[in-house]
Every structure is written in C-alpha cells, then in structure tokens.
C-alpha cells in the first residue's frame, strides 16, 4: 500500500524536476503524462480489485506502462527485459497459481504469522527509504548523460554495471532466490510411500482384474431407444448392464428395458425376439451372474481393491454425492 502511494506521489515530482532542468523532451513529457495516470490507476486497481485475477492484471498493466517509460528514457534493455521476465514469467506464475488454487475474495484473511503487521510496516518504511534515496540520487547527482551511458549500446552498459559494480548484490539476490526455491521444494517434498503406478502398471492391473479391457459400450447402442438409461445390446442381443452409467444403476434409475427386444429361447426350442425381462431372459441373466468370477484367484484382493477405487473415481467424475 505504502509502496504504491510512494510511487504515485514521488514519480510526478521527479519528472517535474527533470523537466525544469531541461533534460526531458516534449515528446517524453507527453508520453509520461499519458502513461503515468494509467499506471497510477492500475496501481490502485491492484489494491482495490475484488478478484485476484483483476489485481494481477493491474500489476501487468503497471509493468507494461513502466516498460514504456524505460524505453522512452533510452533504457531499452531494462524495459524489454522487464516485460519478458516480470510480465511474461513471474506474473504468469502468479496467474497460474491463482487459477489453479482459485484464490477468492471470500477466502479467510486471518493473519497466521505473529507480528505480521509490524513486519509489514517495517518493510514498507524500508522500501520507502530506499525509494527516497534512489530518487535523491537521481535528482541531485550530476548526470553523465544518456549518450555516454549508452556508449557501447544499452545492453553492454547494463552488463558492465550488473557484472562489475553491483556483482556482489547480484550474487546475494541470486543466492536468496535459490534458497527460497530450495525451501519451497523441501517444504512441499513428500516421500513416495507406494511404488509409482504408470500407464504400464495400470494396464497390467486392469488385465489381471479381468474386467472389460475396452471402453464400456455407450448406452442405447442397438437398443430400441438411445436414451442414457437404456442398456446397449451386445452382439448376442442381451442387454449390457455395464453400458448404463453406474450412478443410474445405483440409484435404480436404469430403464428396466421392458421394451427392449432380446432373443429368447422358448421351451420348444425356437428362438424369438421377446421383451427383455421375460422369464427366459431373467433366467439367463441369473445364469450369467452365477458364472464364476474370473478374477477370483491369487490377485483377487488386489483386483477387488482396484475395481473399488476405479468405481470410486468414476463416481467422483460423475459428481455423485453419497
């Protein structure tokens, strides 16, 4: 908060002083007065936006506006790199986290770190002091001139400063960032307790479990109606219960398929088409269910747990509330 206010208040003052001392061209001043209000509004947008993504967008706008100003002041490298690194990578990471986690205005704002406010105030004051000193050095020091600063092209000039004069600070910041990344890795690292189940292991388990290996048939295929709750008919004309969504079956909402015609063997041996659910068919179904389960055996326990977990994930995918 204080940083944004500082920037909003200090920046015009700096430019005013520069204009008075005759070092800013008219074009640059016009550009500044176009971009500066946008930047300030965007900075306030960061503070007051209700949605986290809007706040992130405001930061993007601030960064791009600042990049324009840098380029106008002949700091081409700084301006472009700011967009590449901060807008393109850092803010993109922010957006990634925002979209993945779904930070909302309704989230709790309980302060979990003790003395958070005092630390915040201290850091804010520190930032303010740094900003004031930077502005002071820019305002009262004798300028070298852009032509001399950019004598060996802008990137080379920046490189001289970064890898010469400020190399220690640069390395310290690098170490800090590496430490932070390592800390995040250590905090989020979890030992794997079970062996990883890749595509191959899953395929093996599926074959072992003895269930259907192909995708289940869609409901209604070859049946009289292609509604969701009507079982498909197999090549032998019998309804395939598996083709109806498990949710419908559990809820008892699958069509009893009375209208489905299935081949039925009459007592006299002839085969005719009769509505499903008639006596012969029911008997046949019972017979089907009574057939020994091929999964019974050495891997029955594993297969059973596998099927259960699969069913649970199916149910989750279909949005079942128990």
């Amino acid at each position: 908060m204080s940083a944004a206010l500082d920037a909003a208040v200090l920046a015009p003052a700096v430019v005013m002083s520069l204009t008075e001392s005759g070092r800013t061209t008219t074009g640059e001043a016009v550009l500044f007065w176009v971009i500066a209000p946008i930047t300030v509004v965007a900075a306030f947008g960061l503070l007051f936006a209700r949605k986290a993504v809007h706040a992130a967008l405001s930061v993007v706008l601030v960064m791009i506006s600042l990049a324009f100003l840098y380029v106008a002041q002949d700091a081409v490298f700084l301006g472009v790199v700011q967009v590449v690194v901060y807008t393109g990578a850092v803010m993109m990471l922010f957006l990634f986290v925002l979209m993945l986690v779904g930070v909302d205005a309704s989230d709790s704002l309980v302060e979990t770190i003790r003395g958070q406010r005092w630390i915040g105030w201290l850091a804010g004051i520190g930032l303010g002091v740094v900003l004031v000193s930077v502005v002071g050095r820019a305002t009262w020091a004798t300028p070298v001139g852009l032509a001399e600063a950019n004598a060996d092209s802008n990137p080379v000039g920046v490189a001289r400063l970064v890898f010469g004069q400020h190399v220690f600070a640069f390395e310290v910041v690098g170490a800090l960032l590496v430490t932070a990344a390592l800390g995040a890795l250590v905090l989020t690292h979890a030992e794997r307790l079970t062996p990883r189940r890749g595509q191959r292991e899953r395929a093996v388990a599926r074959v072992r479990a003895g269930g259907p290996l192909t995708p289940l048939p869609a409901p209604g295929v070859y049946a009289r109606s292609n509604a969701m709750d009507v079982p498909a008919l197999g090549p032998d004309g019998r309804p395939l219960e598996q083709s109806v969504s498990r949710v419908l079956r559990v809820r008892g909402q699958a069509a009893d398929s009375p209208g489905t015609l299935v081949p039925t063997t009459r007592p006299d041996g002839t085969v005719t088409l009769a509505p499903a659910g008639s006596a012969g068919d029911a008997g046949r179904r019972r017979e089907v269910e009574a057939r020994p389960d091929p999964t019974v055996g050495r891997d029955a326990a594993e297969a059973g747990s596998d099927a259960a977990s699969d069913a649970a994930s199916d149910a989750a995918a279909e949005g079942v509330r128990p």
Partner: peptide, 15 residues
Amino acid sequence: PVAVLYVLACASVGV
C-alpha cells in the same frame, strides 16, 4: 539493440 528480446516480450504478453 534488443530487438529479439522485444520479440520474446510480445510473445509472452500475447499468451
């Protein structure tokens, strides 16, 4: 002097 970086910047904002 940093034209190629400008290309990268445009691409990253475009995303």
